[in-house]
Every structure is written in structure tokens, then in C-alpha cells.
Write a protein that binds this DNA or RNA. Structure first.
Lengths: 226, 226
DNA sequence: ATATTGTATTTGGTATACCAAATACAAGAC
DNA sequence: GTCTTGTATTTGGTATACCAAATACAATAT
């Protein structure tokens, strides 16, 4: 052998592409204004994506398992609507998962990690956050992903990511942030503090109440979820 | 209309039957002795179940999403083997979910509930448990399902059940019980006690350490997981 | 005998044909 | 006009045909 070669990437499956495309469209969909009761047409979708029904159905089934779609036999495919109760339950699960993640993270976290996360938030002035919602939303995501990653628990990361998709789907981010961005920021700093102290109980408690606080806010203030 | 009729149940889909049958076979499978490296053959399975490939593939895909099977493009379908690390991670997630469930359960639990659960365990004499492993295993399942149910959180129940399937699959129940059945029983009673006191923090902590204890035991004593 | 290589077979992936249930709708009865 | 009811259409569900990649294997050269 005179040639040094590297493995070439296996060509992607059509069903995978269809899945990603369909999920993307779904996530950017505004549920609150769906025509036809959120009904989808297999054949139309297949035509639209330029694939046959078989791989498309595979994609649909995956989305059904994930809880984004619902198939009613011989009736149709429907976009699943989330009730306020659904959102609360999702947040409770998220609190449970991230709480455990924080516990583990407190065990593994390094000084470098802490420094990095502090840097992410140091760009924000707690007294002047107006107009920085979008920017802070990014930092927020980075923060929560940091905790997950630092937990070093693949299963936890996997399940939390699945939950995140549902969170993204429900477009209350903006409304949930407005007016709450200051306390949220303080909570973030407090959580980092607990991690720095390597206190699992404290870290868990703080991130749990952080997320449960969001749930309580939704419960009280949000009303566009039927 | 002179006849009073009730809705008839919609006929089950072939893919559903295939899914259930396949999953059942999988769960009763002893992974530690798989020929052919746990490879499955689509066409053989289809023939065996008496269905065509299409609904079978749907069933397979569901099992892939659930983490029981893995499909390697143009190679084959394989049974996923769980490493010790996988099991530990699953138990951590379970601890997180059931911990939150216990928290909620402490909030909702009634005196009747407590009485019922105490009755389940009162059949056992802590000093003489020998030969009651199977019986106690049933009580154990009933206990954990009770907490989930009492949490009244559908999402939590759903995700925990998915985890349970994986637990069932890994056949360490007998070995995990032997010699540990007494402390396990004590822990169960302690958890019920915390619920009775309606103390969410205590209930959460106790059930978490209960499950984490199992994880530590597996870590130390179990060695048949590669 | 061993190594190479062309070929048949097997595998999962995809497209398509067909079915039965659900539905829409129009023709006919009143 | 309204109500029935038969029929065409549309839907998701299933079976099957076909493809390309992977593999097994036999024929061949050395």
C-alpha cells in the first residue's frame, strides 16, 4: 500500500435528510395559527421534499416517537399541540434532569470551566440588560449546555436535548425573559457559584428552583397555550 | 335511532403487533449469549412474524429510537449491548426522574395511598426474607410505580417507564437483590415514611440515594456487563 | 498453496403498486 | 328544498419490486 487514505463518510440516508428537514420546518412553525387543524398530508410532503413515501414515513414515525406529530390511523397526520399542563410537565422533567446534571457537574467541574462560564456572563451588565434579550438567550443556552456537558453523563445529555427541542418549539422565550431577565441572571451566577464551591446539593437545588421558577411563571402569566 | 351502540375498537396495526412481539422477544433475550454478534435479519424476522418488511421496519425503527436496536446501513440490524457505564447512566437518570416524582408524590399523597403501600410491604418479615426474592421483586415494582403514579406527572411517568424497560432488560435483578434485600426493604419503608410526613426534600433524597445505592452496587459487584 | 479478482448473493434503502377505511360529494327519492 | 345513499376520491397501511452497497465465494493467476 503506497497510498494513505482516510475513511470516507457514508452517504446520508434519504430518510435522515427528510427527518431533519421536516423537524426543522416543524420547529419553526407557529402552532398558534395552523390551518386545517395542523393536519399534514403524506403525499404532499413527499412531493414537496422530493422523496418517496417510504423514507418520509420513517421520518414521520420518528417525530411521532419524539412527540411532535401524531398519526391517526386512516385519518391523517397531525401536529401535536402542547397544553399549558404539557409545558409544566416538560419543565418538571427538565428540572429533574438538569438537577442531576448539576449534581454531577459539581463533582467534575474545573477551575477553567468556571472561568469560561463566568466570562460568558461577564459581558452583561445586570443593571442594563435592555435590548439584550436575544444575546442573553444565547448565553442562557450555552449555560445550560455547559452544565449538561460537564455532568459527563451521555444519557442525561441525550434526554435533556430531547426536552430542549420541545422547549424551543414553544415560543415563549421572549415573553418568559422580558422583565425576568435580571433575576434569571442572578440565578445563573448563583448556580455557577454553587458549582465553584463543588456543592452538589446546593447546585442541584439552585438549578431546580431556577427551572421551577420558569414553570411557575408560565403557569401564572402565559395564556396562549390554550 | 332505536339501537344504542358503543364504539368498536379500531383494528390494531400490523406494525404495532410486530413492535410488541419483537420487543417482547428482545426483552426476554439473554444478551450475554448471542450468536452472530446479536445480528438480526429483516427478511427472516418478517417471515417469522408473518408480516411484510414494511411494518416490520417500522417496528425496528421504534426499537432503534428506544435504544434497543441499532441499524448499520447496508450492514445489518444489531442488538445493542449495554456496558456497565450505560447501566450506571441509566440509573442516574432514573434517580433524577424518580427523585422528582417523589417530590411531587409527597405533595399529592393521601393517607389511603400510604396505607395501601404499607400493606404491600407488611407481608414481608424483615428478619426472614429468604426465598422471597421473586415476591419482593414484584412488591418493589409496585412501589416504584406507585410513586410515579402519585406524582401525577404524565411526562415523568412516560420517561420513567421507558427507563424501566431497559432495567428489565439487564438481568441483574436477582443478583442485585441477593444479600441486599434487607437494606432495600428498610429504604423502602424510610421512603414511605418521608412521603407520609409530606416532606418532598426528604423523600427525594431518600429515593435518590436508594437508586444511587443500586448503581454503586452494580459498579462494584457486577461484572457480567463487559 | 496463496493471493487476487470477478461475480453471485445478501443486506438494508427506496420507490411504487395496491388495499381498505374514511370521506366528500353528487345523483336520486321524497 | 332536504334527506338518503351509492360512488369516486383521498387517506394511511401494507406488500412487493428494485437498487446499490456490502459480502461471500469461487475462479484464476502466481
Amino acid at each position: 500500500m503506497v497510498l494513505t487514505l482516510e475513511k470516507i463518510k457514508t452517504p446520508p440516508k434519504v430518510s435522515d435528510i427528510a427527518y431533519k428537514a421536516l423537524k426543522e420546518r416543524l420547529l419553526e412553525l407557529d402552532m398558534s395559527q395552523l390551518s386545517d387543524e395542523g393536519r399534514l398530508d403524506e403525499r404532499v410532503l413527499a412531493k414537496g421534499l422530493g422523496v418517496s413515501r417510504t423514507p418520509l414515513r420513517e421520518a414521520i414515525n420518528r417525530l411521532v416517537v419524539e412527540g411532535f406529530l401524531k398519526v391517526v390511523p386512516r385519518k391523517g397526520i397531525y401536529v401535536v399541540r402542547k397544553s399549558k399542563q404539557d409545558v409544566i410537565e416538560i419543565l418538571l422533567v427538565r428540572a429533574a434532569l438538569e438537577g442531576m446534571a448539576a449534581r454531577l457537574a459539581a463533582q467534575y467541574v474545573t477551575k477553567t470551566d468556571i472561568k469560561k462560564m463566568k466570562a460568558v456572563f461577564s459581558r452583561f451588565d445586570p443593571l442594563n440588560m435592555d435590548g439584550k434579550y436575544a444575546e442573553y438567550a444565547d448565553a442562557n443556552i450555552e449555560f445550560h449546555e455547559f452544565i449538561l456537558k460537564t455532568s459527563r453523563c451521555g444519557k442525561l445529555i441525550e434526554m435533556a436535548n430531547s426536552i430542549f427541542d420541545h422547549m424551543r418549539w414553544i415560543r415563549f422565550r421572549a415573553v418568559a425573559f422580558e422583565g425576568r431577565i435580571k433575576p434569571i441572571h442572578q440565578e445563573h451566577l448563583k448556580i455557577i457559584n454553587a458549582l465553584e464551591k463543588k456543592d452538589p446539593d446546593l447546585a442541584e437545588r439552585r438549578i431546580r428552583s431556577h427551572i421551577e421558577g420558569l414553570a411557575q411563571y408560565i403557569e401564572k402569566e402565559v395564556d396562549f397555550l390554550e
